[in-house]
Amino acid sequence: MISWVWKINKIATVLILSLALGVLCHTQPALGQTLQSPKTCSIGIYLTSLRNFQTAEKSFTADFRLWSVCPSEDMKPLENMRIVNLFESETAYESTLVKKNRSKLFYPRDTVYWSQRELTATIYHNWDVHNYPFDRHRLRIQFEETVDNALNFVYTPDFNNSGYAPDMLAGEWKIIDFNITETKIPYATSFGNPEIDSQDSRYSRLVVTIKMQRTSLVNFLNLAGGVYVTAVITMVSFLLEYESPLSGRVGLLATALFGALVNMQTAQANLGTSDTVTLLDFIHIVTIAYILAASAVAVYIQILNETGQQKQALYLDRQVLFRVFTISYIVVNGISITYAAIVG
């Protein structure tokens, strides 16, 4: 009985080992394929200009030189790439030269293929002007391979030679960070590529990020100057002498309200629409609220004057409400501007 059990165990062990060896033999080629490194070229960029920042149209323009270094002539990454979120572009020149490989790149090859292209590109960017004029932005210029997926080809960033001209931003902006990275972007489609069995595919993308900060307040003062004038007019209305029923005071406040609304539309047209209330929006809304409150006060003061309480009306107007409105308006604006400057 024991011998039969021993024989059955031996047969089962042989079958299990055979099955394991068969699976290993079938999976070994697949493992070899997945471990095979994709082809690559070194890609670099040098920015010479960033300009034409259109917050309303959600775009910016960049001038730059792009280059690639490849181990073989048939690899043409500059021709096969696309610029993500591109509105329009113009190529100034392009060239490909055979160069001696004096670096460690693609060792031990003696020669490599160096391609260059100089471009001007207008690119989409959703400007966040919530804390304008203390806003900071991350502009991205992204290049993506369009022919070979990431299993066959990837970009290798040229960290050492990529960069930007130190004087390309002057006056209103300054660059506080620059980096270049490679990432792989997944798509839930093979784009009809007959060589890909799966419906999923990934493509190599080179991402150039420029972090910059606004340094000038001139444009802000131009946009906010008008609304602050209407605020001064509103405060002056508390100092007017009583003459005839509401004539001068209400007319002055109506002018201030009209000026604030027009200035708000001008600011929005300049900066573009935003999904949230920006600092400029908040300043205008607060000013309009103060104008409306001052109008209600004017009606109440008129009632006091008409009921023979001129002294009380004068004291309330000049000694109380003028000070409360002026001081509170300055405090509210100071807090909101300070918060925007800290958050950025």
Rank of each mutant, 00 (worst) to 15 (best):
N80P: 01
I2C: 03
K99D: 02
I45T: 07
K174Q: 11
F258N: 08
L35M: 06
A256L: 07
Y155S: 10
D167H: 13
V297N: 13
Q36G: 02
S42N: 06
E145S: 05
F60P: 04
E243Q: 11
G32D: 09
V23S: 14
R140A: 15
F64H: 07
I176F: 03
K174S: 14
K99Q: 08
T338P: 00
E118G: 02
I291A: 05
Q310M: 02
S274K: 01
S68K: 08
M75T: 04
S247L: 13
A256I: 06
T255K: 13
Q265M: 14
H284Q: 09
A170Y: 05
S328R: 01
L151D: 13
R51K: 13
N80C: 07
T230Q: 13
K211S: 14
T34V: 07
P38M: 01
Q142W: 03
V236D: 12
E57H: 04
S3T: 12
P133Q: 02
S72R: 11
V262D: 08
I330A: 15
I337Q: 07
L239E: 13
Y300M: 05
L314A: 10
W6Q: 10
V207I: 10
K211R: 15
A30V: 07
E90G: 05
I185S: 04
N52W: 05
A293M: 11
D158H: 13
N126V: 01
I43N: 06
Y203C: 02
F238L: 04
R109A: 13
V320H: 10
V299F: 15
P194L: 04
V320P: 04
S336N: 04
L139S: 03
L253R: 07
A341G: 02
T276S: 12
V299K: 07
T122N: 15
T61I: 01
L217K: 12
A289S: 14
Q54H: 14
Y164H: 14
S244D: 12
A256W: 11
F64M: 12
T234C: 09
Q213K: 14
G171E: 09
I196H: 12
W114I: 00
A256C: 03
A267Y: 07
Y242D: 14
R109F: 12
K39C: 00
G225D: 01
L50S: 03
A224V: 11
P38K: 05
M75N: 00
T215N: 02
W173V: 03
S247V: 12
M235A: 06
P166C: 00
I8F: 09
L221P: 00
N333G: 06
T266P: 00
Y339F: 10
I83V: 15
I2L: 11
Q54P: 01
G248I: 02
S162Y: 09
L239S: 12
P29T: 10
I291P: 09
F282T: 11
D197R: 11
Y46R: 02
Q54T: 10
A313W: 10
F258D: 09
T326I: 00
A269C: 00
V232Q: 11
N131Q: 12
L304W: 14
V229M: 07
R214T: 05
A313I: 08
I301W: 03
I291E: 06
T48G: 09
